[in-house]
């Protein structure tokens, strides 16, 4: 079995694009958001969780259903998604790791590439992925806190920050503060990666991949033991060719960021990187990033 690659990053950190790019490598297969390690057993992906701001809605299953439809059914149609429901129901008692391993086995010799930002909400979820695949490789994808937080606040008014309990609490006020989510997700990832041997983890700045995709994609491919020739890099420049780079059938429409599904074509560009010591646009009091956030951003190479 070829050990998979997991992309670890907060949401809105170019994960969809980078996942689809790596997945287009001739020796790899980019999966949609599987979200399998959000739960211990497959059936729990259907049972959901009653907790407030739970991410276990029906959309959380779309990635798995689309992947099974594509891999086992050869195409994504309502009928193959129905087959995927049956496939899943026969495996409902299995652990997430067993189900994921079966899919990765089926893809062999291709290397599965998964990015499910929900794994990074808890160290336990990433540990579960690592337990299932002790040889897996982990790419920590980082994005500038201001860019990521701005983008996060546009999606569902920043609901993800709520899920991360990203509040600033004062004497008489509480404020939704996305930089806490940026910080805490990255803390989760760093805490988890402390357990991973150095040769099986790497950290990449998303902005650099956007600006110089060929160089960085080749670098990631080399690190992952994949070909890094021109032809392989050419393939990776076309994320829109991924079978998951479009909306799915009516019974499993998503499985990825809807913005990516609506426009998956990649155009190299140099993202604007704001300075760390400026007022942040989502606050009305003119304040900027927390010192802890600035320190961590510097740790990631942002100035």
């Amino acid at each position: 079995m070829a050990a998979p690659i997991f992309l670890l990053a907060p949401p809105r950190s170019y994960t969809s694009l980078v996942n689809a790019m790596l997945g287009q490598h001739p020796q790899a297969f980019g999966l949609p958001e599987m979200c399998l390690f959000n739960v211990d057993r497959l059936v729990e992906l259907w049972q959901g969780s009653k907790t407030q701001f739970s991410e276990n809605g029906s959309m959380v299953r779309h990635g798995l259903l689309r992947a099974v439809a594509e891999i086992y059914g050869g195409e994504q149609r309502s009928s193959t998604v129905n087959m995927a429901f049956s496939w899943a129901s026969r495996r409902e008692a299995l652990s997430s790791g067993e189900v994921f391993r079966e899919i990765v086995d089926k893809l062999h010799p291709l290397v599965a590439v998964d990015k499910s930002p929900s794994y990074t909400m808890s160290v336990r979820r990433m540990q579960a992925a690592h337990r299932a695949f002790p040889d897996a490789r982990f790419v920590h994808l980082v994005r500038h806190p201001v860019g990521q937080c701005k983008s996060l606040m546009v999606i569902n008014d920043g609901a993800f920050a709520l899920k991360m309990e990203a509040f600033e609490l004062g004497e008489d006020y509480a404020l939704l503060e996305p930089q806490i989510a940026w910080h805490d997700i990255n803390i989760n990832i760093l805490n988890f990666l402390d357990e991973v041997p150095a040769e099986r983890k790497m950290c990449v700045r998303g902005e650099e991949i956007m600006a110089e995709p060929r160089r960085h994609l080749a670098q990631i491919a080399r690190w992952a033991g994949l070909r890094d020739d021109e032809q392989a890099v050419d393939e990776m420049m076309h994320p829109e060719r991924s079978p998951f780079a479009c909306f799915g059938p009516i019974n499993a429409l998503f499985g990825n960021d809807p913005n990516f599904l609506a426009g998956p074509t990649f155009r190299p560009h140099k993202p604007k990187v704001p300075r760390l010591r400026e007022p942040v646009p989502w606050r009305t009091d003119g304040k900027g990033l927390y010192p802890e956030v600035i320190a961590m951003a510097r740790e990631f190479g942002y100035e």
Binding site: L169, G170, V280, K287, P291
Partner: peptide
Amino acid sequence: EPGSASPPAGAPAVAAPG
């Protein structure tokens, strides 16, 4: 230069592993 917002709790980013 703006003032930094005050986080509710703070700790340096670099700490013991994990």
